[in-house]
Design a protein around this nucleic acid. Structure first.
Lengths: 216, 216
DNA sequence: CGCCGTGTTGACCAGTTTCAAGATTGGTGG
DNA sequence: CCACCAATCTTGAAACTGGTCAACACGGCG
């Protein structure tokens, strides 16, 4: 156990060695789907979205990333999605060649990568269920709960919603108007409150949980 | 290049060494979500579905597997989904401990595992887009094209649809009646024909492709 | 032969989208 | 600092897709 902790620290340090900091401003593209994948990234601050753009203008957001999250570690050869900055962001980029070398040198890094990909697959399964089995209210309830867990401060029940309504809609497979309507209804029901477009307060997490579970 | 081919053969042989054949009959469970994950699998014959069952009886199918497909190589600790036999199937199971050992011994096996997980993530992204951006017709068109590519024989345009209408519905996030209706309409439009409930003929792949691309 | 599981079709309904019109916010230049 | 503009968000009404409920068809099997 102690050994593992030391190892984790060493892994992190080794990775830090090969990283380069960069800034990207709001709504700028970090890379496009199909670009040669030379780097992987970690979010230091801000929010990133990973998405695919359809020819007909529609868009599916596969994931939002927050400080501490890694991305593009599963793209070999070329990027399988587009990465864009939701807010101004600071990133660390890692040359994939060097990451691969780290994996060869340190078994623990390799293991960590496998675990990471495995977790990503689990998260995508949850997203599939959300899109395949949930109605609009349930999707939004699940999304808000997830957000409040990831970014919410301890006990004051406040949490940030850094992305636009359109981003939320494209993540949940809904239209922007539907997102607005459901949020308004949750506000009327006193389940949530919106201090600001991008700052929410969780008033009744039990009811929100019930909605996420598909109870009417 | 030649070295890589030799390597691939050796990897396959090494994996084969540690595999055990087993049979599972139609609609039987191979393992349940949450079960300790001691084995990974390859499909030898038949069709398998990976799914999650909700408390309210709904179900989301994340993937169908056909001969040659591997599954459960990303489940560490416990299975993240339930695996069931769509038809009678023959599987090969691999003890995860031994797979892990193979990965340590042979870098190429490890690399192969990473590539496999990466491809799985790409496939799940396509599934996300299907559920998030496509209407019923488009979902079914995409599904049929995928099936005909995977399992169709060369030029006769016939392909098997081994799963039930309910399975298709649960994979596509639709109801069984919607699946039936859309299939009937495609038949009326002479895009496909159904020789049997489980055997289809592709009559007009261009139109099917157009439907998959969301053109009305 | 009749039952049961599966598939198909119809009529109706609910939820979501679409289209359109305001309200609000944030940023820019005077 | 304010006025204005653009972008984003919100709300309403109507249209439509897909869901629900119900009946019926079909095929395999006891």
């Amino acid at each position: 156990m102690f050994g593992a902790a030391v190892e984790a620290g060493e892994d992190a340090r080794a990775l830090q060695q090969i990283g380069t900091k960069l800034r990207v401003s709001r709504n700028k593209t970090i890379f496009n789907e199909g670009d040669p994948a030379e780097y992987s990234y970690k979010v230091v601050s801000g929010t990133v979205r990973l998405c695919k753009h359809m020819t007909d203008g529609r868009r599916q957001i596969a994931q939002f990333l927050f400080p501490g999250d890694f991305f593009s570690f599963a793209d070999f050869g070329e990027h399988s999605f587009t990465a864009e900055a939701v807010t101004d962001v600071v990133l660390v980029s890692y040359a994939q060649r060097q990451v691969a070398q780290l994996c060869e040198e340190r078994r623990s890094v390799n293991q960590r990568l496998l675990t990471f990909l495995s977790q990503r697959i689990c998260a995508m399964q949850d997203h599939l269920i959300l899109l395949g089995c949930q109605a609009a209210k349930g999707r939004i309830a699940s999304f808000l709960l997830q957000l409040s867990e990831q970014t919410g401060s301890e006990e004051d029940q406040l949490f940030d919603v850094p992305m636009s309504r359109l981003d939320i809609a494209d993540y949940l497979g809904l239209r922007i108007e539907t997102v607005c309507r459901v949020l308004s209804e949750m506000k009327r029901m006193r389940v949530i409150d919106m201090l600001d477009v991008h700052q929410f307060e969780l008033l009744d997490s039990d009811t929100l949980q019930a909605l996420a579970d598909g109870e009417e």
